[in-house]
Design a protein around this nucleic acid. Structure first.
Lengths: 344, 344
DNA sequence: ATGAAAGCGCTAACAT
DNA sequence: ATGTTAGCGCTTTCAT
């Protein structure tokens, strides 16, 4: 029985042609709705195809037409930390992209690629599997991305605009987000605000910039001891925040660069007996669906995820069309909830 | 400039052949590592291909070889409610599948399909785009699925085993999960346990069965007023639970069929001034990453999501190989957290 | 060890 | 309105 399924030979145009008593070209024309075929013949062919569950072989069709409609969505992953596709924000982005692509009639190929060798992402295009790539996350790979762009590969990146950038990014207004979050905390009376995030990452760097701008505008000095450069990883964040608590460093608020980091932070604060928001206000980033259900519900910077999917797809399709598409920054919005309720 | 990108003609084997001064067949053989080509020639060709970023056209190769390595992952969506791919559990499953497929060298095509016409999922196979389909969620579509199976389409479903089932499912032990959750609540002293979930769905029905079994075993009568048949949708759950609170119906615990439903429930309870866990214990289902960060941290039935991805892929590949693969039930595990802390 | 030629399933001139 | 034929980019006999 091993290959019974494989035995079942696939129906092809020639079969339909034979059964309908016409030539393959006629079948081809009939199924593509060509006006060159009589209505009667077309209907007969269509009916036959439908009743036999015949479907055109897309591979052969593409080969002939050079008309691929597949877009690759790539999530770089860190081989070292063996981190899988798991951050809810990225997953939500995948969902959003799936919606946007489906809407426009494109297939979506999802793959993980070792972040150290993003060229692998290029292979999908070189080999004709996909006509463009959407990369979720810029990470530290600006140079690699520029090299890909130099090769004229059609791709877009969810990330942030950087100087000397040859590729197109779509991203949230990270500086604005950092600014709004920090300003909000300052407005609540906070003065010693912890920043949680790895500012080696371009997106985080810009949020950090916003953080500094807000502090400066309020005349509050930046204390390096309050900056925790942890990557988007709950475990490392947990350790860093715990250490901060134990060190006895004084702080009255936290701005975390993702909701996952904020969640971890709140948990650690709870363990350390520091009340949120009464003693420490916490702001997150992303506004994943969890944020509003957290307790206390999390104040966070909402990234426009549905719109992001649409914009990424739109930008990519235009690039594929040969247009030069400038980077795009989408507005973000501070959503105030109980984790930063006004004190005293 | 409109089509500059399109202009760039793609490199093909003939080009490499010409540049290497050999025939296409030799290039083909060299790149596939055939022993029929001299080491010297092979190295020259390989080097040339690498330096020019040449990649074999997979479409043409597949056409010739009939050797597709693409698996389609389909998330049915409800056209009526226009519900998108958003439940964190499904998204996590997508991530898990992406990992499992990448691991085994398969490409993953992700698509949404109108749940009313799952035949559309079949088209992916008929048209040769993918060699198999993994369907996330069985929903109400048992009959449709049976019809697909009758057509010998290679697919697996994340769902639950049902009588007269012609297709292969992989799923968690829903009855066991429902039983464990309910028994746990009973053990905490709860007697009037609300069930939140649409038991028209096979998976939920089995959890409901477990719920009833546990009640019966404890000699507790089932009160239909405590059964809220809401779908996996936060808004409807919110309304139903709110209504229950307002109705004055007596209850001391809730078993919700997903963590999202549990989250919503806890929120409503909070609004209604009912303390969790002191007045009402809450158990969720899935153990999405949010659950442990909830507040109070949510007791929930953990679905083995990483394993699920592996098992689904494994089952599908065997089906594609012609094997008859029986449905498979994976063990689930009750994770006890603060939302059901022992009272009094 | 290499090349010439046929063919994978389809579409689109070019016939008729 | 329909059929015949060439060819999309590749692999693989079959020849040399």
């Amino acid at each position: 029985m091993k290959s019974s399924a494989a035995e079942k030979k696939r129906l092809q145009m020639a079969d339909i042609a034979r059964l309908a008593g016409v030539s393959v070209s006629t079948v081809s024309r009939a199924l593509s709705g060509s006006p060159l075929v009589s209505r009667e013949t077309r209907e007969r062919v269509e009916e036959l195809a439908r009743s036999l569950d015949y479907a055109i072989n897309v591979g052969a069709q593409n080969l002939r037409l050079k008309n691929n409609r597949t877009i690759a969505v790539v999530i770089p992953y860190d081989k070292v930390s063996r981190q899988h596709i798991s951050d809810p924000f990225f997953l939500a982005m995948v969902g959003s992209l799936a919606d946007a692509l489906t809407e426009r009639g494109f297939d979506m190929l999802l793959s993980r690629v070792d972040a150290e060798s993003l060229d692998a992402a290029a292979r999908v295009i070189g080999s004709g599997v996909a006509i463009g790539v959407i990369l979720i996350g810029q990470w530290r790979h600006h140079d690699q991305l520029n090299r890909l762009a130099a090769r004229k590969l059609p791709f877009v990146v969810w990330g942030t605009q950087i100087a000397q950038q040859l590729y197109c990014t779509v991203g949230g207004d990270n500086q604005g987000g950092g600014l709004a979050a920090t300003r909000h905390l300052l407005g609540q009376g906070a003065r010693r605000i912890v920043f949680v995030g790895d500012h080696q990452l371009p997106e985080v760097e810009q949020r950090y910039q916003g953080y500094r701008d807000a502090l400066a505008a309020a005349g509050v000095a930046l204390d390096p001891a309050l900056v925790l450069p942890v990557p988007f990883d709950a475990d490392q964040a947990r350790a860093a925040v715990m250490q901060l608590c134990r060190s006895g460093t004084d702080f009255d608020a936290v701005f975390a660069c993702s909701d996952v980091l904020a969640a971890t932070t709140m948990q650690v604060l709870h363990q350390c007996g520091r009340a949120v928001p009464d003693e420490v206000g916490v702001v997150g980033y992303d506004d994943i669906s969890w944020a509003s259900h957290a307790s206390p519900p999390l104040t966070t910077v909402r990234q426009p995820i549905e719109r992001a999917g649409l914009e990424l797809v739109d930008a990519l399709l235009r690039i594929i069309d040969g247009e030069t598409v400038p980077p795009r920054t989408l507005p973000v919005e501070l959503v105030v909830r109980a984790s930063t309720r006004q004190r005293g």
